[in-house]
Amino acid sequence: MTNQTLSDSPADLYQSLSDAVVGMDEDGVRALANAAVERGVDAYTAIDRGLVDGMSRAGVLFETEEYFIPELLICADAMYAGLDVLRPHIKRASTRARQRVVIGVVEGDTHDIGKNLVKIMLDASGFEVIDLGRDVPPQRFVDEAVAHGAEVIALSTLMTTTMDAMAEVVTLLRDAGLRDRFRVVVGGGPISQKFSERIGADGYSPSAPGAVKLVKQLAGEAA
């Protein structure tokens, strides 16, 4: 699928990278990323205008329901294949401190796809994501958020019975006098906007792309 030639400009290369991510072409992305390295193209820009741009286009297709979970996951694999090639070549000067999000599933099983999607899309949006996995006790969210100096704590659950544990995270933050330091967002099958308000969280999103928008907005406020 790649027809990259040496005569193409860096801008064309970025576009091809972006297209290959949206096109779910993992091998193509890897080849283009290697070509970018060989040609000495700025790795940070290739990531930003190529891989990240492609993933964000995939996110738009997901929101407009042209792509679904399988497609989005395959796009993410393509993006990560490119990142593996390009990241070691980022010049220090072009990196900037990334805002941090601590994310985890309060109680759930292996079908924590929603959380994984949010993580992927936050990654692609330039956040540093600390993934605590699943069945995370409330106190650990607080401890890790403090330890990593995170701006946002993102909680997901798949089980209705453990929605109380989400409320507990907010309570723990409040009791420790830390509530204002972090923005708390919630999501997952049984969660709703009403529930988010009930427990005093800062926001709720029913979808992964929505969660990324929410985190961007809230992290901006926190910064």
Binding site: P70, E71, T110, H111
Partner: peptide, 16 residues
């Protein structure tokens, strides 16, 4: 099926 095969892989394999 998604409870015996890793679901992240399984959902990709539906297409790939």
């Amino acid at each position: 099926a998604a409870s015996i095969v890793d679901p992240m892989t399984f959902f990709k394999e539906l297409r790939k």
